[in-house]
C-alpha cells in the first residue's frame, strides 16, 4: 500500500509542477454543477444505482452520490454522464 501512496503523491507533485490538470494525470472524476439543475460527471466508471431521488456513479476509488428530486439521466456517454433535476446534495461515498 505504501507503494501506491507514493505513486499518488508523485503524480500529484508532477501535475502541480507541470500544471497539467490533475484529473488527467491522476484519473480523477470531474464533477461540474450548473446551479441545482444539472450535474456533469466526467471520467466515470458506470452507474451503480439509479432512481428518481438518488444516483450513484462509480468513479474509480469511490462513488459520487447525487441526491435530489425528479432526477433524469440526460445522456450517458462512455466517459460522461449528464444528470438533470432538482439537485439537493452531492456526496463522495467511500
Amino acid at each position: 500500500m505504501a507503494w501506491q501512496d507514493f505513486k499518488k503523491k508523485f503524480k500529484r507533485q508532477m501535475s502541480d509542477m507541470l500544471e497539467i490538470p490533475s484529473e488527467i494525470i491522476m484519473d480523477l472524476p470531474k464533477v461540474v454543477l450548473v446551479g441545482d439543475l444539472q450535474v456533469f460527471i466526467e471520467n466515470h466508471r458506470g452507474i451503480v444505482e439509479y432512481s428518481a431521488e438518488s444516483v450513484r456513479v462509480n468513479v474509480g476509488d469511490y462513488e459520487v452520490a447525487v441526491y435530489g428530486e425528479d432526477l433524469l439521466l440526460r445522456n450517458i456517454l462512455p466517459d460522461e454522464i449528464c444528470l438533470e433535476g432538482r439537485i439537493k446534495s452531492i456526496q463522495f461515498v467511500r
Binding site: G46, I47, Y50, A52, L72, L73, R74, N75, I76, L77, P78
Partner: peptide, 15 residues
Amino acid sequence: LNMAASRGIFLWDIK
C-alpha cells in the same frame, strides 16, 4: 445502462 454506455450506444432522457 453501463453496458450500453460502454458499448457506445447512446441513450438519453433516461427516466
